[in-house]
C-alpha cells in the first residue's frame, strides 16, 4: 500500500509511537485467525455438499461473537449458485449486547430497511474487492446500517474452493472499540493526530475538522507525516 502525495515522510519512531503500534496491532491481531476459522468451516461445509452450512456457520459465529467483545458481527456472504441452492446469501450474525449478555442476531437483508433495496451484494466494497483481487480487504470505516448503526470496519477475505471464487468470509469491528483504547495514545503523539484507513479515509481524528468516514485529498495529506502500522491497512498521520 502506497500513500498518496509526494515527499511521504514517516514519523520518527518514539516510545509513544511504539505503544500506539502495539495497541493497534493487538486490536487487529485476532482478525486474520478468526476469519480463517470462519473460512475453513464454510469451505468444508460447501465442499462436502452439506445441507448444514447454515447451522455450522451459526455455530462457529456464535462461538466467536461470544468469546470476545471486540467483534460486532461475523459470517459469510455468497451468491454462488451452489450456496444459494441450499441457503440464503447472507449468513451473517451481529451482536446485540444487552445486560452484558451477547445475543447474536441473524442479519437478514430484508429486515433492514436499507437492505430491502439492495440490488446486489456484489457491488458492495467488502464483497467486490476481495472478489476482484483474491486478497483480504479492510473496508471502512463506514456506517454499518445493516449491523450496528455505528462506524465500523469490515474485514473480509475471499472464499476459494479449487481456485473458484465462492464469496467472502469476514468480521466487523466498531471504530469505537479501537477509539477507546488509542485516543489518549494518539494525543501523546500529537494533539492533531489522525488514524487513517487505506491511506486516506479518516478513522479517528483528534482534529475536529476531519470527521470519521471522510476522505482526505492529496493536498491535505501533504501537510502530514505518515506511518503505516505494520501488518495492517491503517496509518498514523501527524501534522508536520
Amino acid at each position: 500500500m502506497t500513500h498518496k502525495g509526494t515527499n511521504v515522510r514517516t514519523i520518527a519512531e518514539t516510545p509513544e509511537m511504539t505503544r500506539l503500534f502495539d495497541v493497534i496491532i493487538a486490536w487487529h491481531a485476532q482478525v486474520p485467525e478468526t476469519i480463517e476459522r470462519i473460512s475453513s468451516v464454510a469451505i468444508a461445509a460447501i465442499s462436502a455438499d452439506s445441507r448444514t452450512l447454515e447451522a455450522q456457520m451459526e455455530k462457529v459465529v456464535f462461538d466467536i461473537l461470544n468469546s470476545t467483545s471486540k467483534f460486532a458481527g461475523a459470517g459469510i456472504v455468497s451468491v454462488h449458485p451452489t450456496v444459494l441452492a441450499r441457503s440464503r446469501s447472507l449468513l451473517w450474525w451481529v451482536t446485540q449486547r444487552e445486560n452484558g449478555h451477547v445475543d447474536p442476531l441473524p442479519l437478514d437483508a430484508d429486515l433492514t430497511e436499507l437492505g430491502t433495496y439492495q440490488a446486489g451484494l456484489e457491488d458492495i466494497e467488502w464483497y467486490r474487492v476481495p472478489a476482484a483481487t483474491g486478497r483480504p480487504h479492510m473496508t471502512g470505516p463506514f456506517v454499518d446500517y445493516m449491523c450496528t448503526d455505528q462506524f465500523a470496519f469490515t474485514f473480509t477475505v475471499p472464499l476459494e474452493i479449487s481456485g473458484e471464487f465462492y464469496g467472502v468470509a469476514g468480521i466487523d469491528m466498531t471504530v469505537r472499540s479501537l477509539e477507546e483504547q488509542i485516543e489518549s495514545l494518539l494525543e501523546d503523539l500529537s494533539p492533531d493526530a489522525i488514524l487513517l484507513s487505506n491511506t486516506d479515509l479518516v478513522a479517528i481524528s483528534l482534529d475536529p475538522q476531519f470527521a470519521t468516514g471522510s476522505r482526505l485529498k492529496s493536498e491535505q495529506l501533504e501537510a502530514y507525516d505518515l506511518t503505516l502500522v505494520p501488518g495492517t491497512l491503517l496509518s498514523i498521520a501527524a501534522p508536520r
Binding site: D123, I124, R128, G213, S214, R215
Partner: peptide, 13 residues
C-alpha cells in the same frame, strides 16, 4: 465528506 468516488458503485448498480 469527500466520498464522491463511492458513487461509482452506486452508478453501476
Amino acid at each position: 465528506m469527500g466520498l464522491e468516488e463511492n458513487l461509482c458503485a452506486v452508478r453501476e448498480t
